[in-house]
């Protein structure tokens, strides 16, 4: 499963994190020795959380397919928990919620692990979509029925279905790229998250014009352009570890960074509607799992299907 390219990528990320940690400590020593500057404290909390996330991901990569599938199943579980905490449901939905966590989520990842594309690509949009409202309706409560079932379905689509397309990349069969699929995951996550980080950095440095002031105060045009272009440039420079040509890599990077940005925007709209700032509190400095995964969740299915369409034989 491990390939020299993956090690290179991990070493690169490790170097970035070492530099970021040193930089963060210097900033803290200069500007916030007693922890009084919240921006710097948050920055350092984010960097430490990145270490944990990168180490978890690296361990999963080393463990191979089962490790990656398990890691994303756990991420889905945490994300679903954050999402369903905020959705509308009442006592009549109890069994459909139980089914979301303990039946649909494990089944989706089990279908994935058994490489049953025909099933995992339609299981939630077809079977869960049709059967969950039945479970809710059998309990007889009609109040807010459509809102309840659609929000539950949305939660499943985002947190389980879309998220499961990250490990699904392992099951593509790309001629000449056998045994290296894990690179696709590392590449997707690296480019999208780099774009997020660079949007944050560019936005903090030169951000003036807000993209959607009513949705998110921190998303600026300067950050968006700077972040996506930086991530696309870095991603294109890494084309040699992917099945893509330089031009194709640039197109893919642009596609997934934009999808990532839109993901952040849509998820911000939901958070804003529910009156919260973060989805959760489990990842220090970042908020919840969904705050960190929103961009990857939106980019993953598109990245998966485009790659499958153009390059994969399955």
């Amino acid at each position: 499963m491990t390939s020299p390219h993956l090690l290179w990528l991990l070493a690169g990320v490790g170097t970035i994190l070492v530099l970021a940690s040193v930089f963060g400590e210097i900033l803290r020593a200069r500007l916030s020795p007693a922890g009084q500057n919240p921006v710097i404290e948050n920055l350092n909390a984010r960097i430490s959380a990145w270490w944990v996330m990168v180490i978890c991901l690296a361990l999963a990569f080393i463990a191979g397919k089962p490790g990656v599938v398990l890691l994303f199943a756990l991420c889905s579980f945490a994300a679903l928990r954050e999402f369903l905490t905020l959705t509308t449901h009442n006592r009549a939905d109890h069994w459909s919620l139980v089914a979301c966590f303990f039946l649909i989520l494990p089944l989706q990842y089990a279908f994935l692990a058994s490489d049953w594309y025909g099933m995992y690509s339609i299981f939630i949009p077809v079977y869960a979509f049709l059967l969950l409202p039945v479970v809710s309706s059998l309990r007889g409560s009609t109040k807010d029925f459509l809102i309840r079932v659609s929000e539950t379905q949305w939660a499943l689509m985002i947190c389980v279905y879309c998220a499961s397309h990250v490990p699904a990349l392992l099951y593509l069969q790309i001629p000449g790229f056998e045994g290296r699929n894990v690179i696709l995951i590392a590449y997707l996550i690296f480019v999208v998250q780099l774009s997020d980080v660079m949007q944050y950095v560019w936005g903090k440095l030169i951000g003036r014009t807000k993209v959607a002031p009513s949705l998110s105060p921190s998303k600026t045009w300067e950050g968006l352009v700077g972040g996506t272009l930086t991530a696309t440039a870095v991603g294109t420079a890494l084309y040699w570890m992917t099945p893509f040509s330089p031009l194709e890599a640039a197109g893919m990077c642009l596609l997934i960074t934009l999808m990532g940005f839109f993901g952040g925007l849509v998820m911000s709209a939901i958070k804003r509607d529910r009156g919260i700032k973060d989805w959760g509190h489990l990842i220090a400095g970042h908020g919840g799992f969904l705050d960190r995964l929103d961009s990857v969740i939106f980019a993953a299915p598109i990245f998966f299907h485009v790659t499958r369409w153009v390059w994969s034989t399955t």
């Binding site: 579980f77 928990r81 369903l84 109890h94 139980v98 966590f101």
Partner: peptide, 11 residues
């Protein structure tokens, strides 16, 4: 909820 057996893991 009152009377249920399996909990739903919400925050």
């Amino acid at each position: 909820p009152k009377g249920e057996v399996i909990p739903v893991p919400l925050i």
